[in-house]
Nucleic acid binder design. Structure first.
Lengths: 348, 348
DNA sequence: AACGTTCCCGACATCGTTTGCGCAAATTAT
DNA sequence: ATAATTTGCGCAAACGATGTCGGGAACGTT
């Protein structure tokens, strides 16, 4: 069954049948004011010609494109690629196409992506902010155009929209408390840009756990940054030169967890004998690392699914405004060898 | 600097300046038949209104969209996400937007993605075939429409287009030879769908290495499939029950490598004492696994870059046909602990 | 003074589709 | 039988931009 090469338009059908394009258009969308017999003819002809409406023309007319745009920092990241899978699953089910853009953590490219998706007339936008983004005027613009917008993971407090996030506070609290309960007292926290909501929430969870257990919050154990491959090592050195060096590392991302693991090993710091290590990560190989890495798992797929559901709900019920809320998805603490106590290590 | 909410059109500029839309259009594209002074006025007004041409309207007119479509099996895969980064880097440099679609290894969805990108009027298409794809009529259609197409990684022999692939034969040959030279004799090969070009090339490389070293090719050591998380274990069991069980595993993908590692550990088979393990993978954490995993690294980023370059070359020199060729990018064998010889293990 | 050029610019059609309006024929109501 | 509806369909405008014409004004040429 060879696919036809030509692309037929509504005009071709009209010419073929000797009727007007308006009639064809209406017949195709099942308008009540078209003779059933005519409808049948049109349908049959469209089928025969393998007619497909031109979405570009539809978009020009301003109607729905049944496509949603997804803009996120980077795809080469387990959290985000799993989130995309969640998004696609829902979107596909509900008859939407997904168009993915990467901001590459650049504000400039994020703005360009927003413009691009607006002008390509997506029906709604799903976004996770780049780490450079602090001004959200480009998103306010989206809202002003009445295009539904849902933020996930990296969200902004300045925007009154539906947001879907992991329970960052709870996850950070659990991780920190676990480290404390396994005997650690000087817990370093390696995290990303301080202005991001997830950073603040995780820091708050970390701090709350310290306070609950009567430990001092020491700003000098916190490090912010966009850690490239070669930046983690120097930072670890710096921390270990501290007069009271850390006995545990709590990292805020996939990349940081692996970077930290690598840096610690290169420096001959044994995990967990010398220092504990726990990450906020979605690495599916965490269990196979040496040592197996304790993690706070974010339900990436679920976050994507929920975000997509909320967005499509908004798109389809555009008239009556849906309530705006922030959905918090629970995280899960998985304890592996990288945070064992010294006594547990000895037992092995 | 708040971004303007309104989207202005060429008409708005025309009205503002009291001239016709045609003049505005021509002024904007610098036509020689427009008074420099008028041009200046138009430019200034466009700047002031932050005018952006509507790509939808441009697409309807049939002009270039400066967007390229990328269709690949799945993003949650190191190889593909790195390839995308390579593609984006080049595309961005040369002024193109990238629109990503996932086929999720489904033929049906691949066809839908192709149609979607055609009707969204991308200037060219970059593809890696889904594992279900054997019929390529939908791509022939793309070619017939004169839309430039470049295939990468998962390519089809039935299509006369530019292809960019890793040196799969060479990589598989090197991996297999390395296993043989480290004393292995019964090398199992876990690979993906047999009809894919990459599968065949890797199998051929494997086979050639066996022959070179006078080892028998044993079909019963080969396993094909789309291995889900729970399928690798049973397959390993089956192989190990063999009258002459394998002493090494050579896997053809990221997922297989990790799945195999997991299965072997669960079965208490020590690597590399009991069996060697080497993967065809792009895992950036391969070095931190237990044991560190020997791999054949495919230059994913480079493959993406080269593919994007070829595609854009084709798009921009559409008139004179560019030569069609298959570009082969070298792979690299990285030897780590998972393929050490027994004597090497003892030394530690 | 009458003609041909050149320079700028506007009217209009076009891409594929939807939609408001109107009009004729067929049907129903009076 | 005539008037009032209903039915079925076509015309034309619109979406935003481009491109083909062609026309008016200001020149220069005989």
């Amino acid at each position: 069954m060879p696919l036809p090469v030509e692309t037929y338009t509504i005009k071709d059908i009209a010419r073929e049948l000797g009727i007007s394009t308006s009639t064809v258009s209406r017949a195709l969308r099942g308008s009540y004011e078209i003779n059933p017999e005519t409808k049948r003819l049109v349908m049959e002809c469209a089928e025969r010609l393998n007619y497909r409406p031109n979405p570009i023309a539809l978009s020009l007319k301003g109607s729905a494109s049944r496509a949603i745009g997804v803009i996120l920092p980077q795809i080469a990241n387990y959290f985000f690629s799993q989130a995309i899978n969640g998004i696609e699953a829902i979107a596909y089910n509900r008859g939407y196409h997904v168009i993915i853009f990467q901001s590459q953590e650049s504000y400039e490219r994020e703005v360009a992506n927003v413009q691009q998706s607006m002008s390509r007339k997506v029906d709604g936008l799903l976004m996770s902010l780049s780490s450079e983004t602090s001004d959200v005027a480009h998103l306010q613009e989206v809202l002003d155009k009445n295009v539904p917008l849902v933020l996930f993971d990296r969200v902004s407090a300045d925007l009154n929209v539906t947001k879907v996030v992991a329970d960052n506070f709870g996850g950070a609290f659990a991780a920190t408390e676990h480290l404390i309960q396994s005997g650690r007292r000087r817990i370093a926290h390696l995290t990303i840009q301080p202005w991001l909501s997830i950073t603040q929430e995780r820091l708050a969870g970390y701090r709350a756990a310290l306070e609950k257990h009567g430990l001092e919050f020491d700003e000098s154990l916190i490090r912010y940054g966009t850690f490239g491959p070669d930046e983690v090592g120097p930072m670890v050195d710096e921390l270990m030169r501290h007069s009271a060096p850390p006995d545990a590392f709590f990292t805020a991302s996939d990349r940081l967890a692996v970077g930290c693991l690598q840096a610690l090993r290169q420096r001959n710091l044994h995990i967990p004998e010398d220092v504990s290590l726990i990450g906020f990560t979605n690495l599916n190989v965490a269990d196979f690392l040496a040592p197996p890495l304790s993690t706070v798992v974010q339900p990436a797929t679920e976050i994507g699914q929920v975000a997509a559901e909320r967005l499509i709900d908004q798109i389809e019920r555009k008239h009556r405004a849906l309530p705006i809320e922030t959905v918090k998805i629970p995280t899960e603490l998985i304890v592996r060898s990288s945070t064992m106590t010294s006594s547990e290590v000895v037992k092995l």
